[in-house]
Design a protein around this nucleic acid. Structure first.
Length: 931
RNA sequence: GGGCGCAUAGCUCAGCGGUAGAGCACUGCAUUGACAUUGCAGGGGUCCCAAGUUCGAUCCUUGGUGCGCCCACCA
């Protein structure tokens, strides 16, 4: 093995071998375990959030695979209707073309070509991330099979009356020329105005004053509404006003919707361009006057002077004309929520169109029940509240989009406008023929379905439905869904609804909701903020100039360029070093705390890269000490030392901890347990403890064999325990260590995940090693606090009250001497006859080292003891205060009181010892001064 | 308007009804044998504020302050 860990050399080679061997496919006949991937946009690239979620899914997948489950991680990508179409339209725009120049067929071909061209990016990225998905089952939402599923669901829902076509107000994007669902609307507060307009009463007796944020829509007004209880206007209800600029007469009506306290208390009613007004219009049987074209310019319904104007231009003109006519009462500043499309950013227009809807209430009800009764569990649980809140107020889902890229709606029309919903044109034609008595020309609906319609079927469409496949029977319901809270409504809820509807079963049993990955300041990562980190740049590293270029090219707002460049240069003056996949994955796991967003900290990645290096070098040490003894290890008598038995048991404890935490989705705690075991127990203690055994000339061969075997077996078990988090480095090391440890098999990824039973704990060994550690730590403390180099050897005396210590320390004396560079170690009953010493006190044990062998000046030790004494005194006082409280002694549990009594006794003992020691040292110091 | 979350060391975060923790950063010491991507030792906290419950509150309850997110039709 190389002296230094360099991830780049090993990662791609290893992944290729795994993939070629077909090890990612489900195998065996264990319990099925399945995760479906949240399908990323096929033409996109994976960002940090994907890398994070994929890491967690891969960890779960690998653990279950190693545990013998028949494990499937189902991969795939999404066609991402609007997003993808926009990208291709932008490409066309660069060539000076529009999609209509190509026509539908050619345009769609062009999108497919783009999909083929860029579609490999994601799978390449996933391979670099080590994601063990079954590539043989890779699916795309517009694959033939998945499209069959879409049509099947559409037809069946339509047959049941759960899909219908209707003309009503939708959120219209006048830039993209498509309808959007409610979820795709972002309503941000923006500064605007509230215009107070005078509408003259028809009888000329005065004005009504209406307040509006959208004066241009007055051209489509059909009424003025007031609250029926409003004394100011009650007498006017039933009368008419003459609508300025148009001259139309419109009625004054009464409706509870009006809030007398807001504005003037009078509301202009424009049913064709406002959702509230639409409802009021329905209640009062008012006409709808649509004044906008698809571009949101004014149409022929308005007076000639305004036709063809853009809505914002029209606003200025209308306001100016009101002012000119003396009908503008006042204008007050007003912040309002402006609805914008989540893709285009355009201000949306409520617009009257024919669209397809899913009648959602009948589907929502069982989906709510499934979470209520625990068939689906959200982790962390509080996300179920978010789910319920939305599901209980859910609105019908507008599923048609006026786009070209997507699943075309399986509905056909005849000349008369009759609709035939069918799985294919042939089926539609058959129905039409039957109805008309002869074949007839049909025209398919031009619209496509909302991307999320096909995503909603993902857990069963990817498994082969509507075919009744073995995979469907085996893996549905899937085990867990891992995703972000931002798509609970878009995706999770809809999968639950349609899964229950079409499979009669929930689509997954648990939903693990991850936090959002943010930058180090807590900001969302986004291209426009210029704070994106590409996961591959963490793995491979990137030069500063390349990083700056990456962040500043193709910006939507080029004016941000300088600020982004400056911030990037400041944050990464050296660019980003190559940390490797394993370090990045371990970081994600370690940061995956429950229910909390994650500020991504490069320092953590560096720390875990160091951890990889630590593991690498520990393995080198183990191999250096075992490889050439391979034959000898397999046979021959073997004797296990206290340390050998201790470290096996400690690994067992780590196994229990890791398994527990993973079962509860506490990846952070699992990572922490692994880190601590590997670094602090295996490396810091056990490897050091093994050195005297392996390097000492006097050790017998059975003891050497025991330690060598323990080194191998514990390292091998540790590698297996780590593998799901750090697949590459563990595989690389295991290739050498596995066989030496007596393991059969050619890859770590199919080895059994460790169990606690393999590594039994040993209470005696733990007690004895604790004694050893106390002594070694005491000596280190003395040296450390007195700034004495380790190289300065000293005799050591130990006084102990702890049962078993005397025997344990005697047995381990040689080891302690080596570890702590101690000349001799002697157990004493009292300090009285010892030379003046520096001391370290821990519970029940005192470690003493003659100070004249360590330092020249007693005052350093005196100062040190003074500090210790002050600290211990504080603790003692806290304890004493507690025990002085009669209520505490009377009410606290017996064990707590006893514990406090023991503690104070210990503190008193230590204080006394410290005092005694200080007196002795003071005497020595005095003598020294005299001389 | 409704709902959810967060506040602990300089930074990023765990944690817990009884002794406050980690990583990074910081200080001192250490240089031939697994590893300087290292080892050893150390400094550093009003656990946001207030009241309540309790023998005891960083933890539980209530209120407040600050920050963040989601949902919602006040023109």
């Amino acid at each position: 093995m190389d002296k230094s860990y360099s991830p780049g050399d090993i990662e791609s080679r290893i992944y290729a071998a795994w993939e070629a061997a077909g090890w990612f496919a489900p195998a065996g006949d264990g319990t099925p375990y399945c995760i479906v991937i949240p399908p990323p946009n096929v033409t996109g690239t994976l960002h940090m959030g994907h890398a994070f979620q994929h890491t967690l899914m891969d960890v779960l997948t690998r653990v279950h695979r190693m545990d013998g489950d028949r494990t499937l991680w189902q991969p795939g990508t999404d066609h991402a209707g609007i997003a993808t179409q926009m990208v291709v339209e932008r490409q066309l725009a660069a060539e000076g073309k529009k999609r209509h120049d190509l026509g539908r067929e050619q345009f769609v071909e062009r999108v497919w070509a783009w999909k083929e061209e860029s579609g490999g990016t994601i799978s390449r990225q996933m391979r670099r991330l080590g994601n063990s998905v079954d590539w043989s089952r890779d699916r795309f939402t517009m694959d033939e099979g998945l499209s069959d599923a879409v049509r099947e669901v559409f037809v069946r829902l339509h047959d049941e009356g759960l899909i219908y076509r209707g003309k009503r107000l939708v959120n219209w994007d006048p830039v993209l020329h498509t309808a959007l669902s409610d979820l795709e609307v972002l309503a941000e507060p923006e500064a605007g105005s509230l215009w107070h307009l005078r509408y003259p009463l028809a009888d000329g007796s005065g004005y009504m004053i209406v307040a509006t944020t959208r004066p241009e829509t007055m051209l489509g007004d059909v009424a003025v509404a007031v609250n029926p209880e409003d004394e100011r206007y009650r007498h006017l209800v039933g009368q008419q006003v003459r609508l300025p600029l148009t001259g139309r007469l419109i009625p004054i009506i009464a409706d509870d919707y009006c809030d007398p306290a807001f504005g003037s208390g009078c509301v202009k009613i424009t049913p064709a361009h406002d959702f509230n007004d639409y409802e009021i219009g329905k209640r009062h049987a008012l006409p709808l006057i649509n004044i906008f074209t698809a571009d949101a310019t004014l149409n022929e319904e308005v007076p000639a002077a305004y036709r063809g104007l853009d809505r914002f231009e029209a606003r200025k003109r209308v306001v100016a004309d009101f002012e000119a006519a003396g009908l503008l009462e006042k204008v007050v500043p007003h912040t309002l929520h402006v609805p914008r499309g989540d893709r285009s950013g355009a201000v949306l227009e409520p617009w009257l169109t024919d669209q397809w809807y899913v009648r959602i209430a009948p589907l929502a009800e069982p989906a709510i029940a499934a979470v209520e009764d625990g068939r689906i569990r959200f982790v962390p649980d509080n996300w179920s509240k978010t789910y319920f809140q939305w599901m209980r107020n859910i609105q019908d889902w507008c599923i048609s989009r006026q786009l070209w890229w997507g699943h075309r709606i399986p509905a056909w029309y005849d000349e008369a406008g009759n609709i035939f919903v069918a799985r294919s044109e042939a089926e539609a034609q058959a129905a039409a023929t039957k109805q008309h008595g002869k074949p007839i020309a049909l025209r398919q609906d031009e619209d496509v379905l909302d991307t999320w319609f096909s995503s909603a079927l993902w857990p069963f469409s990817t498994l082969g439905w509507p075919q009744q496949t073995n995979e469907l029977a085996r893996f549905y319901p899937t085990s867990v869904l891992v995703t972000g809270f931002d798509i609970i409504f878009f995706w999770v809820a809809r999968m639950i609804m349609l899964g229950l509807k079409f499979q009669g079963e929930v689509p997954f049993r648990e939903v693990y909701i991850t936090g959002l990955i943010r930058d180090e300041h807590g900001n969302k990562m986004s291209k426009s903020k210029g704070n994106i980190i590409d996961p591959l740049d963490l793995i491979d590293g990137i030069e500063l100039e390349a990083l700056v270029a990456k962040r500043t090219t193709g910006l939507m707002q080029p004016q941000m360029k300088n600020a982004i460049e400056k911030a990037t240069r400041k944050q990464f003056p050296q660019g980003i070093p190559a940390f490797g996949t394993d370090a990045m994955r371990f970081t994600f796991a370690a940061l995956a705390t429950m229910g909390r967003d994650i500020r991504f900290d490069l320092g953590r990645v560096e720390g875990y890269r160091n951890f990889c290096n630590k593991l690498w070098n520990a393995a080198r040490y183990v191999l250096m000490n075992t490889e050439e003894h391979a034959a000898d290890l397999a046979s021959g008598p073997c004797e296990y030392s206290v340390a050998d038995r201790w470290i096996r048991g400690r690994l067992g404890a780590a196994v229990t901890s890791v398994r527990t935490h993973l079962a509860g989705y506490r990846f952070d705690l699992a990572a922490q347990a692994l880190y601590e075991f590997v670094w602090y127990e295996f490396c810091d203690w056990y490897l050091e403890l093994s050195k005297p055994v392996l390097q000492g000339a006097e050790t017998d061969s059975a003891a050497r064999r025991g330690t060598r075997r323990t080194l191998l077996e514990v390292l091998e078990g540790t590698l297996r325990l780590l593998h799901p988090l750090m697949p590459f480095i563990t595989e690389e090391i295991w290739q050498k260590v596995g066989p030496l440890a007596g393991r059969k098999g050619t890859t770590i990824m199919l080895q059994a995940y460790p169990t606690a039973a393999e590594f039994a704990r040993d209470a005696t060994a733990e007690r004895d090693i604790a004694a050893l550690q106390a002594v070694v730590l005491g000596i280190r403390q003395i040296r450390g606090e007195l700034d004495v180099p380790h190289s300065r050897a000293t005799p050591v005396y130990v006084r102990t009250d702890r049962p078993g210590d005397v025997e344990a320390l005697a047995a381990l004396a040689a080891t302690i001497r080596k570890l702590a560079n101690v000349e001799s170690i002697e157990i004493v009953r009292s300090e009285a006859d010892l030379p003046p010493c520096a001391i370290a006190i821990s519970a029940g044990r005192t470690v003493l080292a003659p100070f004249d062998r360590l330092i020249d000046d007693v005052s350093a030790e005196l100062a040190r003891l003074e500090k210790r004494k002050a600290k211990t005194g504080q603790e003692r006082d806290k304890c004493a205060a507690k025990l002085a409280n009669a209520n505490f002694v009377a009410n606290a549990p017996e064990s707590v009181v006893t514990q406090e009594r023991d503690r104070i006794a210990e503190f008193e003992r230590q204080l006394e010892q410290l005092g005694e020691q200080m007196r002795r040292l003071a005497a020595v110091a005095a003598t020294a001064t005299e001389r």
